[in-house]
Design a protein around this nucleic acid. Structure first.
Lengths: 196, 196, 196, 196
DNA sequence: CATGAATGAGAATTCATTCAT
DNA sequence: AATGAATGAATTCTCATTCAT
């Protein structure tokens, strides 16, 4: 009845299933440690099908990378938007990071594992930069207000984001629990890192 | 002069060359992305020779992991030893981390890439833990003095160490320079994270 | 005419070609003495193709074993069926053995070389046992009639079958010819072994 | 004190240890399935040492073959010597075979596995033939007496010897026990095969 | 679009053999 | 004679990719 007769599946669904499967596997092992046939099997499609949607394994990992990065971007931008103060902005950012790493743990791990890798296409790097931009703008205006200490925003961001990643890895390894209390403590501590 | 007459080659030299070559390659690509024949070629030995010294690729990566971890351990323990105050202790730790990441950049990158990976043997994890212990002791005594904020030492260490890693990755990607000024700034900032 | 339209090649054909090639090579050299690429080359397929059809070399040798065993089973069961007397039954069995060893000489040699070997899976052994059962039943009923001497059927079968194998090996080595006369003589002699 | 000062070991002992180790391993797996370093390890010598005593793996397997064959030859010749009658001669032969297969089970299995193989040197085959000769002479004279049925001796020997091998394999596979009773029964039966 | 059999280059690993000591 | 580290060709097996259907 509808104009679009979905025979078995929407091609977009197939593509999404492949990206999802690739994300799951590549966030466990590395890019090189993940076999294309395994991705296909997990996505529930034939091996050949993958090549209808992506030119090759590299194109696939880049697609995964972009989607993850974008997803995190949206998450953080939303979290930060309309914060009444730098302190509150940071609080939302830190909590946003936490929430994202819980809700999209695979995406979070994937992004960490695949930073700055040789098979990342320029287009993927750009997504990467645009994410940073939003946060850098936030830092700069907070510095102008005298709320965040002086220094290159990218350095401060690297330190603060690195701190979160360190915490996340620790919890992933089972050495600590990322509970409410730990988050509160860490937020306080990292604000100590940033505050003027 | 030496008591030990070297024949053609000391087996220990061969082993060391293989570990070195593996470190160099595996810190560029991942474990899975590094081919054993390439390691052998870089070490200047035949492919089969590797298997006289290591049972397999996994045993090799574990040996590399342990050596790197131990190397960093010694470096930091030495740096921290006999610090007159917590503040000074942290300063030395941070500078030690910096120096280590410059002098042993491959080891540093390797350790970051290979944390908590499925092919790490229990023995390797233990080396890992023993390193943490030294620093945790430092943190605890500084907390007793009221110099470092309250909270589980492993959380604070994860945050601070993570911050350094974040900075190092940023510089590796060429987005910032790890110069004297940046180190001074970052040290000050991360002390803000730790200080009571 | 046939309902099944053959594309380029039926996968079953490929599988059969691989089994055939493996049989040919493994009945000349041993299991360990036969290289997988050689099997593939003889089957006219690429080396990798083998692994689509068999999980590994062991799975392949087991498949070959089962097919050979089954083939001999069918041959002998058919030969023995409806024999009017024990003497005639044995005559047919002996002639059946002879015919099988001529028409399927590779299968016959293969089975001899690969009896009770460590890489035989339990499933393969079961095929083996079911073959024995048919003959054992024949022996038991002949013993009941007083035509075959007393004693455990499996012992008598082992002796008689062993005698045939000994003869076949002798002829294979070129030390005697398995002609009509020899078969007649040997049949007579081995009946002497069995007869009450 | 003795003229021959045995420093550590007699070279003959080393050689014997290697042959013994090779026999043990090659009677379990095949020639191709047995690794030279494994033989060396089991013999308690270094890998290189093997090549002082044998030109290569083929020379080793041939040495093992000859020693086994000779050992069985002596055993059977002794068993058969001075038998008062063909019937008694066969009885001794059959019992000799039994004893040999128990006392030298590895040698017996080895000989069975390695009959007529491509790496057997002519010299090895000759040992092989000389064994057969002794038994063939026995058969011929028994035929002259009218005690053993007419026919080419090598055919009768192949049948009778094959029968024993069949029985031995059966017992090796654990399907029957080679006890006194079974031997008595089988001897009786195989005499039925031979008797005129 | 989807399939999955086929490919073949390349991966990890083994092993017969050599040779400096 | 004995050693054992080193070799490199050969082995088993994997996997990114293609293509006829």
């Amino acid at each position: 009845m509808a104009a679009r007769s979905t025979r078995t599946h929407d091609p977009q669904d197939t593509r999404a299933a492949i990206v999802r499967a690739a994300l799951e596997l590549m966030s466990e092992r590395s890019y090189d440690g993940t076999a294309v046939p395994d991705v296909a099997a997990r996505a529930g499609v034939a091996a050949g099908t993958m090549y209808r949607h992506f030119k090759g394994k590299e194109a696939l990992v880049n697609a995964v990378y972009r989607e993850c990065k974008l997803s995190m971007h949206r998450f953080l931008i939303e979290a930060i938007a309309g914060a009444p103060s730098p302190r509150e902005g940071f609080r939302r950012l830190w909590r946003g990071l936490w929430e994202f790493s819980r809700k999209h743990s695979e995406a979070f791990r994937f992004l960490e594992m695949h930073r700055h890798l040789p098979y990342l296409e320029p287009a993927s790097r750009e997504v990467s930069n645009s994410v940073m931009e939003g946060v850098a703008t936030f830092v700069r205006s907070a510095q102008a207000e005298g709320a965040i200490r002086e220094g290159p925003p990218e350095v401060l961001i690297a330190l603060a984001f690195g701190a979160f990643v360190g915490l996340a890895k620790e919890s992933e390894a089972g050495l600590t629990r990322l509970d409410e209390e730990t988050i509160a403590l860490s937020e306080e501590a990292v604000w100590g890192l940033l505050a003027a």
